[in-house]
Simulated assay, not measured.
Amino acid sequence: MNILKYRNGYVGNPRLIYCGRPKKDEYLCQQLLIGLGNPFTWKPTKKAKFKVKNLAESLSKYRQWLWKLICCYRDRNLEQLQPWEFRYWQLMKCLAIAIENHQVDGLVCWCIEAKDYVPNKGVEQCHTQILYCACLHMIESGLVDVNCDIDTLLNSLWE
């Protein structure tokens, strides 16, 4: 999998999935949606949910939060999620399906460029690397199925 640093040439490519926060504000039940972006930030922004001290804390909290989403799904407790978290879960599940079906060549973010990325837990520089690892875990654990309209959901992330 390629982790690609955002460039205009990538926008709308159906084989690339945008994993940053959305450019425009969108709400569900009065809660700001964040696409596949990291809800934890140390930088000034209105598009993140939580402010933390630094990148290391942002990545650590993100990893813990993704595990919470996976466990809620595995244990059939999705009602414990906030509407914005449930939307994130839906997108993450569809991303895992697309990865499993070899429909994705790269994940696009604003942080790094890593061609042919091979997961190495604990040395991630970007939330997209953690997201990719979480998707692989979901696939290996049998937590994904093919009953998701991924074209509609994932293509909307570029907007």
Rank of each mutant, 00 (worst) to 15 (best):
M1Y: 12
Y10K: 09
V11G: 00
G12E: 06
N13Q: 08
N13V: 04
N13K: 14
R15Y: 14
L16A: 06
L16F: 13
C19D: 05
K24N: 03
D25M: 10
E26M: 14
Y27G: 02
L28N: 11
L28Y: 13
Q30H: 15
Q30E: 15
L32Y: 13
I34E: 05
L36D: 02
P39E: 04
F40M: 07
F40G: 01
T41V: 10
K43C: 09
K47W: 06
A48D: 07
K51H: 12
V52A: 11
N54Y: 03
N54S: 08
E57S: 10
S58R: 08
L59K: 06
R63G: 03
R63D: 10
L66C: 12
W67G: 06
I70M: 13
D75F: 15
R76E: 12
E79T: 03
E79Q: 10
Q82D: 08
Q82W: 13
W84G: 01
W84P: 02
W84H: 14
K93C: 03
L95V: 03
I97Y: 12
I97P: 00
A98R: 12
E100C: 13
H102Q: 14
Q103W: 15
D105P: 11
L107D: 01
V108P: 07
I112L: 14
D116T: 04
D116C: 09
P119E: 08
N120R: 15
G122C: 11
V123A: 09
Q125P: 02
C126H: 12
T128K: 11
Q129M: 08
I130D: 15
Y132E: 10
C133I: 09
L136Q: 14
I139G: 05
L143T: 00
D145K: 05
N147H: 11
D149E: 13
D149K: 04
T152P: 00
L154N: 01
S156R: 00
L157Q: 02
